Deep mutational scan, measured.
Amino acid sequence: MDALKSAGRALIRSPSLAKQSWGGGGRHRKLPENWTDTRETLLEGMLFSLKYLGMTLVEQPKGEELSAAAIKRIVATAKASGKKLQKVTLKVSPRGIILTDNLTNQLIENVSIYRISYCTADKMHDKVFAYIAQSQHNQSLECHAFLCTKRKMAQAVTLTVAQAFKVAFEFWQVSKEEKEKRDKASQEGGDVLGARQDCTPPLKSLVATGNLLDLEETAKAPLSTVSANTTNMDEVPRPQALSGSSVVWELDDGLDEAFSRLAQSRTNPQVLDTGLTAQDMHYAQCLSPVDWDKPDSSGTEQDDLFSF
């Protein structure tokens, strides 16, 4: 819950932080000083300027060897085509990944977070970031790969997607708890209302004896509580940590079903599988986004697919 609360507080303090972009060759504004600060901008989305290598189908939802083989196929196909790589912007948030063309600003792909089953910074092609997700059109699994400016960037994108998945799962947990509370309150309110109706004398007997209905007592009954809980029953509950912020979080049926399955089948359902080692994760978390744009010590960066 700490990640969720800190993310909400950060967004309320400075929503404009989320509009910064990394990996864009110096076009961005001043960047936060450390990885923790940038992680807090996830709610509205972190932007990464990358190059799209392509996509291939895979048979399993996750796995280092599986993704490595898929990336190898994608890279080989991209090299064989001889075409310049498409420059894209990857927007990562707890909602998922939005992929747009840098030149036309046209939407290429919009992947809900619950469809993503794996992401990684490839070991062999260490400047490549990739994720595996279920197609929104059918049940097939797709591996999408992107060329980053350097290994640090690939690791940073991988960690960002993993963190977005974690925050999304926490949102789901909060929403589920809130819905259970509202359902319980609604049920209790309905029981109270039913009890009051059972003990209320029939209207005919009131008229016969000349008694008047006590409207004041009726007004004191917990009807307002019942209506408050039943009027918006169809509205999706939102985490309290975000009250007053500009973010509107809505959970669709697909996300609810997917996270429910994860909660039942996995020990740590909030953790998205990645190909990063503990050492890689520690190294990337210690980086400032400013470091992502620094040239690798191995030599001059080449803006070309064939540089790796």
Rank of each mutant, 00 (worst) to 15 (best):
A133Q: 10
G82L: 13
V75D: 13
T277F: 06
P289W: 05
T104L: 05
D252L: 04
S21A: 07
T209K: 09
R39A: 05
L193T: 03
V75N: 08
R266Q: 05
R29Y: 15
R9Y: 07
G54A: 08
L255Y: 09
S243F: 04
A258N: 06
N102T: 11
L11H: 04
P222N: 02
L42F: 12
Q240T: 06
K179N: 05
A18V: 14
S14Y: 06
N268Q: 03
Q270H: 08
K179V: 12
A263E: 04
D126I: 00
D280A: 02
K152V: 13
L193Y: 08
S49P: 06
K152N: 03
L85K: 08
K166H: 04
E257W: 14
V174H: 00
L50H: 05
K184E: 05
Y131W: 00
K51M: 04
F165E: 01
F259D: 02
T300M: 01
H125R: 07
C119T: 05
Q155C: 11
K72V: 04
T36M: 11
Q155V: 14
E44Q: 10
A121S: 07
L262D: 01
Y52S: 14
I116L: 03
V88S: 14
E59F: 13
A80T: 14
L85H: 15
G96H: 13
P237D: 08
R73Y: 15
R9A: 14
G8Y: 15
F165T: 01
K91F: 04
K72R: 03
V167F: 10
R115V: 12
P15V: 00
Q163I: 02
Q173R: 09
R196H: 12
E142D: 08
R39G: 02
W22Y: 09
E40I: 13
E44G: 11
P32D: 11
S93C: 11
I97D: 15
R95F: 07
R115N: 05
M46W: 05
S205F: 02
R261V: 08
N102A: 11
I74Q: 06
K127T: 15
T100K: 14
Q20I: 06
W249L: 10
Q264E: 10
K62C: 07
E188R: 00
A76V: 09
D126F: 09
Q270P: 02
E59W: 13
E142S: 01
A263T: 10
R9C: 05
M46A: 09
S265C: 00
F306V: 00
S297R: 05
I97Q: 07
Q279R: 03
K30G: 09
Q285E: 15
L57Y: 10
G210Y: 01
V128K: 13
E180M: 05
A70C: 11
Q173G: 02
Y52I: 07
L147G: 10
D198F: 12
P202T: 08
V92E: 12
D280F: 05
I132L: 12
N229G: 06
K72Q: 10
T200S: 05
F171I: 01
K176A: 04
K220R: 12
S224G: 02
K51L: 15
C199F: 07
L206S: 08
G299M: 02
K179Q: 15
T158L: 02
A221G: 07
A3G: 13
V75K: 10
E142W: 12
V226M: 10
Y118F: 13
M281A: 01
L276M: 13
H282P: 04
L213A: 00
I71V: 08
R29S: 09
L159R: 13
V128R: 12
N138T: 15
D37S: 13
H144V: 14
A221N: 03
P222R: 10
D293W: 00
K204T: 03
D303M: 09
G45W: 13
A263G: 05
S175R: 02
N110H: 01
L31Q: 09
S260E: 02
R182M: 04
A278V: 14
W35R: 15
C199R: 10
R238C: 06
A168N: 01
R39P: 05
N105C: 01
K123Y: 12
M281C: 07
T77A: 04
L223D: 08
M46T: 13
L17Y: 13
L276C: 07
P222H: 08
D101E: 10
G25W: 00
L255G: 14
A10F: 12
P61Y: 03
L203A: 06
A156M: 14
Y283E: 00
M124S: 13
L276T: 02
A78G: 14
P239F: 01
D256V: 14
I113C: 01
T218S: 07
T89Q: 11
P237L: 15
P201G: 04
Q134W: 15
S49A: 11
A162N: 01
L43V: 09
V247S: 05
S246W: 00
T120N: 00
S297A: 07
R13H: 13
Q20H: 05
P239I: 04
L272M: 05
E44V: 10
H144F: 15
W292E: 12
Q197C: 01
K19V: 14
T160H: 08
L47F: 10
R115K: 11
P237H: 08
L193G: 14
K127A: 09
F48M: 11
L262I: 08
E301F: 11
T36V: 09
D256H: 02
E40D: 15
A3E: 12
I116S: 02
